[in-house]
């Protein structure tokens, strides 16, 4: 009786946790910002404004200069976001109506010419055309994590 009551109280008071969840999105989404910089992924309903990322990359928000935004969710639940011309990949953690920067992974100084994400668990593969590929984790490029 006491044990059952204890279990009930525990179940009600503590948060329910499901472990070993795989958030991996099998295919990247390529989203085109509207005039305000808003992008919407019709497949999973994700919607956000890309201007903070553009500002982080270019220090300019006078107009939407970001072309197609490439986005993929890793198996741990982080979003990997970049766009053509960006020098970095932003690893964003979803939380309470926000996407919070977890890690900014610097790829190169020239900017990405033709970025594309592939789901290659346990990594996110970033391609830059067919010339270069990077295996990314939430902490950085594989082998170069800091």
């Amino acid at each position: 009786m006491t044990a059952g009551l204890l279990l009930f109280v525990t179940a009600c008071s503590s948060s329910l946790v499901i472990k070993k969840v795989n958030f991996a999105q099998p295919l990247e989404s390529v989203l085109t910002p509207n005039n305000n910089g808003m992008v919407k992924d019709v497949r999973d309903g994700l919607k956000f404004n890309v201007m903070p990322l553009q500002y982080a990359e270019t220090k300019d928000t006078s107009s939407v200069t970001t072309q197609d935004v490439h986005l993929i969710r890793g198996h741990e639940g982080y979003y990997y976001v970049t766009a053509k011309g960006y020098k970095d990949v932003f690893v964003m953690a979803p939380s309470d109506g926000t996407l919070k920067l977890k890690k900014k992974i610097h790829i190169n100084d020239q900017g990405l010419q033709n970025p594309a994400f592939n789901q290659r668990a346990p990594y996110i593969q970033l391609l830059n055309g067919s010339s270069a590929s990077y295996d990314l984790t939430k902490d950085g490029i594989k082998g170069k994590e800091k």
Partner: peptide, 13 residues
């Protein structure tokens, strides 16, 4: 092989 694997899944789709 590397070039073959370096294909965008999105592009394939």
């Amino acid at each position: 092989q590397a070039q073959q694997t370096q294909q965008s899944d999105y592009q394939i789709v």
